[in-house]
Design a protein around this nucleic acid. Sequence first.
DNA 1: ATAAGTTTGTGAAGTATTTCACAAGCCTCC
DNA 2: GGAGGCTTGTGAAATACTTCACAAACTTAT
Lengths: 213, 213
Amino acid sequence: MTLPANKRIAESTVRRLSMYLRYLEGLDGVGQLTASSDELAHLCGTTPAQVRKDLSFFGSFGKRGLGYPVHELTERLREILGLGHAWQIVIIGAGKIGSALAEYRGFRQRGFQVVGVYDKNPEKIGRAWGDATVRDMESLAVDVAEQRVDIAVIAIPADDAQDVVDKIVAAGIRAILSFVPTSLHVPPHIAVKTVNMAMELEGLSFALTNRAD
Amino acid sequence: MTLPANKRIAESTVRRLSMYLRYLEGLDGVGQLTASSDELAHLCGTTPAQVRKDLSFFGSFGKRGLGYPVHELTERLREILGLGHAWQIVIIGAGKIGSALAEYRGFRQRGFQVVGVYDKNPEKIGRAWGDATVRDMESLAVDVAEQRVDIAVIAIPADDAQDVVDKIVAAGIRAILSFVPTSLHVPPHIAVKTVNMAMELEGLSFALTNRAD
DNA sequence: ATAAGTTTGTGAAGTATTTCACAAGCCTCC
DNA sequence: GGAGGCTTGTGAAATACTTCACAAACTTAT
């Protein structure tokens, strides 16, 4: 088992690993046996040195003069990223975005299984959404006690977010993917990632405004 | 006009400015007159020194002993981020995600106006989506010549992405927000931001797997 | 077997970003 | 109007991340 030692791995490195994996799966699918850091770098939009450095944190997978074995590296990366088993996720917030997420193919394709959809709005509770039925937010804690939930995806109004997050944490879920444009306060052992579309758009607005002409 | 000098502004700084702005708008809304770097830092989940450093790139907006004037700083940040006028965006890809985006309130609330929705699937062309009608992807170039488009948001299958991006660039659009889990190749003067949900989830998977217990 | 040609793995160097720490400035109160 | 209490703005230090550059190791060709 390639343990990441006691070194802290940079978030940017993990993001790139995820990208390497995606392209390696593609190469594996078409039967390519090896890939060089140069090839991976071009595919992923980074540099060969970066690829080698990223991978070297976890061991030496390549063969000098030849490159990396595609299939084996794919499996190693899955292992490193913890994709060996299906993570179970719940979606909280049965609005537009929650809806798109619940039906999003990419989740299941990559091993994330939606095991529940929650909302606090009585009008939405009980409706069928994809495979699941929308359940009352209040029953989350009880449900989690019966069926393991690894990750909560929240797509709810900003004003409700901290309350909901507190309930998620209290229920024992240790990872949150947030689509809420607010900073969330959680204990240090909880992993949080935020997707903030407004922030990305404003980044583009800044780039367009302050471009070097 | 607070020009960002000739210094390059880090992307992370821009993201935080966007977050400061969001909270300042809230404070302005409830009539708070000043805010210290300490208060902003706590709201945004960063440090006071970071707040001061970020803002100092653009000028000195605060008053020692007192903090930053909420309303004025709000306006300054809008200006810096280029939010003074409405940016016009098109959404390309009338699928689940494109749909959620087209109806997403957050866009218009923050000054981004959806002026068109495009797809290449004949079955989808012509349908009404929110305020707009889905148009043929092929007519993008002609449409852009008639009505300014600042940003293209793409929510399409990965295999189509590079083709579509090339058309976007050829049409003269200079900023792209991508929901496609692929690296895109564009000329250097084009600004691209990518939102990759699978990557975020895998980041959580990594965190859960390699947590410090 | 040897030479030529690749490509990895990795310290070291270079850049970028964050944090520190404190002088300087402003407000308030006496 | 001077003293005390905050809070900014910012060089300098610390930390984090990326790129360089090259020895070592492997493959292939002859």
